[in-house]
Design a protein around this nucleic acid. Structure first.
Lengths: 218, 218
DNA sequence: CCGAAAACCGTACCGCAGGTACAGTAATTC
DNA sequence: GAATTACTGTACCTGCGGTACGGTTTTCGG
C-alpha cells in the first residue's frame, strides 16, 4: 500500500521531468520505467494508459502549484498589512523561486499540454481549464483587495492584470528556454511587479486634475 | 521545379497546423502525407527526415512573423509621427490580428519547439534562439525610440518591457488555448499596451519634481 | 518535340514504442 | 499465515519513423 504509492510517485516525478523537457508525446514509457527501475507491467499496474498518467501528473502539478501560491501569498500578507505591499513582496518571492530554472520551476505542464491538446482526453483538458481559471480568480481576488485601498489607474482592466501574471510566467518560461537564460523569467515577474506598482500608485494623477499627493498613502 | 515548391509548401502548411494543434512528436508523417495527397516516398523526397521538416517549418514561420511585424510597425509609423503613438497603434493592430485565433494566429511554433527541445538538433534550437533575440531587439529599438522623446518611468527596465511583449503574446496564446477563449490573447496585448502607456506618460511625476511638459513633444 | 532532370509512386523492409493479455511471483500487511 | 498488493516475464499486435531502391510520370529548357 505505502510502497505502491512510493513507486507511483517516483514514476510521476520522472515522467513530469521528461514531459517538461521533451513534451508528452516524446516521453516514452520505456524510458520512464528504465529510470524508475521497474518493468512495463509494473507501469501499467499503476496507470492503465498514458492518458491516466497525464491526469495524475496534472493533478500532482496543480496541487503543488497551489501549495506554492498559498505559501507565497501567505508570507506576503505576514510581512505587510497593506495588500499592495503584500502582493509586491509575494511577487518578489515568486521571482526568486522562478530564478533557478530548472530546479525551482522547470516549466509549466499546463503550457506543455496546451500545445498538445489533441493528445489528451476531455478530462485532462477540463483540468487545465479549471486550474487556469482558479489561478486567475485567485490573482483577481488579491488585485481586488488592493483596489479597495489604492485607487487603480483608469483604462486598465483589473481582470487583465490578474490574467497577466500567468501569461507573463508562461511566456517567461518559454523565453528562458529559448534563450537558455533562466533569469529572463525572474525579470519578467519583476517587470509585472513594476506594472502592478504603476497601476496602483500613479493612478490619482491620471484620474483627477490635481497631480500631487496619493503617492505614499497608507 | 515550380510544382515541387508548391508541394513542399503544402506539406509545410499542413505540418505546421498539425504541430500547433498536437505538438511536433504527435504529428505523424503519414497523416501529413494523407492530407497532402502524396506518398511517403514523395515526402522524403522533399525532406530527408523529420528534423529537416522542423527546420523548414521554423524558417517559414519566422519569415512570416517577421513580415507581419514589418507590416504592423510600418503602418503604425505611417499613422503617427510620435514614436509612442505609433507603437500604441501598432499594438492595437497586433491585438486585432491576434483576436481571431486560430485563423490569424493559431499558436507559436517557437513555444511549441521550446517544450520539446530534446527532439530537435542544434540548428533548430539555434534558429529559435536567434528569432527570439531578433524580435526582442526589434521591440527594444522601438522602445528606445520612444524613450528618446518621452522620459520613461524610473525603476522600469526597458529591456524587460521589450521582452514582455513576446512573453505576453506567448502566455496569452497558452491561456487562450487553455480557456478556449481567443479574446484573452487580444486583451493581454492590449493590457501590455496599457503598461507601455503608463511607463511613458506617467513618468515625469515620479522622476522629476515639475510634473508638467514632456507629454506632447515632437 | 525531345531528352534530361525533377518530382514523384510502390513495395518491401527494419526497429522502436505504445499497448494488451495473462500467468506467475515476491513483498506487505492484516 | 493468508490475502492482498505490487509487481515480473513473456509473448504478441499495431502504428510510425525511417531506409532502400527501382520504376514512372511530369515539367521544363533547348
Amino acid at each position: 500500500m505505502r510502497k505502491g504509492a512510493e513507486t507511483r510517485e517516483r514514476i510521476l516525478e520522472i515522467a513530469e521531468a521528461s514531459v517538461l523537457a521533451k513534451g508528452f508525446a516524446a516521453t516514452s514509457i520505456e524510458e520512464v520505467i528504465a529510470e524508475a527501475g521497474i518493468t512495463k507491467s509494473g507501469f501499467f499496474y499503476h496507470f492503465k494508459d498514458k492518458n491516466e498518467l497525464a491526469r495524475a501528473m496534472l493533478r500532482r502539478y496543480v496541487e503543488a502549484n497551489d501549495r506554492l501560491f498559498d505559501d507565497i501569498f501567505e508570507r506576503g500578507r505576514q510581512l505587510s498589512d497593506d495588500p499592495l505591499q503584500a502582493f509586491l513582496i509575494s511577487l518578489k518571492l515568486l521571482a526568486e523561486i522562478m530564478a533557478d530554472l530548472p530546479n525551482g520551476h522547470p516549466g509549466c505542464l499546463i503550457a506543455s499540454i496546451c500545445y498538445q491538446e489533441r493528445l489528451f482526453d476531455r478530462e485532462v483538458r477540463e483540468l487545465t481549464t479549471q486550474s487556469v481559471q482558479s489561478w486567475n480568480a485567485r490573482f483577481r481576488a488579491i488585485i481586488d483587495g488592493i483596489a479597495r485601498v489604492h485607487p487603480p489607474c483608469q483604462h486598465i482592466d483589473l481582470d487583465d492584470v490578474a490574467d497577466m501574471l500567468s501569461c507573463v510566467v508562461d511566456g517567461g518560461i518559454i523565453m528562458s528556454k529559448a534563450l537558455n537564460d533562466p533569469r529572463r523569467l525572474e525579470r519578467q515577474v519583476l517587470a509585472f511587479r513594476g506594472f502592478v506598482k504603476l497601476v496602483f500608485t500613479q493612478a490619482a494623477q491620471a484620474a483627477m486634475p490635481p497631480p500631487a499627493s496619493a503617492v505614499a498613502a497608507e
